[in-house]
Amino acid sequence: MQKLLLLIALCVFSLSVKAETIKVMLVTGGHSFDTLQFFQLFDEFDGIEYEHFAQPEANRQIALGKADEFDVLVFYDMWQNISLEERTAYLRLAQEGKPFLFLHHALVSYQAWPEFESIIGGKYVQEGKNVEKDMLSTYEHDVWVYCRIENYTPVTNGFRELRFFDEVYGNVQISDKVKPLLSTTHPNSMPYVAWENHFRNSTVLYIQPGHDKRTYVEKDYRKLLFQAIHYLAKK
């Protein structure tokens, strides 16, 4: 009888743990990155399972409804080609309240799709037709970035200051509707390097640090991403 009760208890525990697991659709493509260390970062997150999709297959699967199977969508891509069907799928997900987390160079995606800027809450502007030189965004590699907490939320909870040897983006368009989470005074950086945005019924987070393995291995960066995913999953 005791063995039976123990078996039942273990089954109940196993089911509860499985129910609490956060399922992440992890999207990459369009920009090189330290693949081994990046995936190790997600491999080591307790209670988070991910399935990786590279572009353009990722957008094809989103258009087919694959994203509905996941709790949070995480984008580490830098992609430009997106069909009308795929754009419609993104907007449908936002209408349904699917949470999005965009990382680093994902800010550069979809230069020719204006609504993407509204989704993510900003835009890194590249050269293009009718783009004036003073509008172009900039970048600088291998600099120390000191990040100050602008707003304490479940994403930034437990931090006082963060420091990364990373890449900064400058002259970036940032919506005045976003809620800043992290700021920096680096002279070549945009003022906010992480924010929360709301588009339709979705909560959207953007985190700019995360260029390479030197940041992936940082304890604070791992905690920041972990807390961001958990915060979004509750949304």
Rank of each mutant, 00 (worst) to 15 (best):
L93S: 05
L36G: 13
H52K: 10
E57S: 14
I149V: 15
V155G: 03
N157W: 08
L64D: 15
R148Y: 13
L103Q: 02
D43N: 11
T88N: 14
Q55E: 15
P99E: 02
L101G: 02
E127L: 11
H141R: 10
L84M: 04
I48R: 00
N157I: 06
T138F: 08
G122C: 12
E85Y: 08
F102L: 12
A63M: 03
F102G: 05
F45R: 08
K98A: 00
D166Y: 15
D166T: 10
V74M: 03
K66N: 05
L101W: 07
F116R: 05
D142G: 07
F116E: 02
Q111H: 12
H105G: 11
Y76P: 06
N59T: 08
Q55G: 04
E132M: 10
L93H: 05
N157M: 07
L41V: 08
K133D: 13
L93G: 02
Q55I: 07
G65S: 07
A106Y: 01
E69H: 05
W79M: 00
E44A: 08
V74L: 04
A67Q: 04
E150S: 05
E140G: 07
V155T: 13
K123R: 15
E167W: 06
F53A: 00
Y110G: 02
E161L: 09
M135N: 03
Q37E: 15
E86C: 05
N151L: 10
F53W: 06
E150N: 09
N81Q: 11
Y124W: 15
N130W: 08
F159C: 14
A63F: 03
E117C: 12
D71T: 07
Y90T: 00
F102N: 00
Y76H: 02
Q80K: 10
E96F: 12
V143E: 07
L162S: 03
I149P: 05
E44V: 10
I82H: 00
Y76Q: 05
E167T: 15
H52Q: 13
K133H: 12
L107M: 15
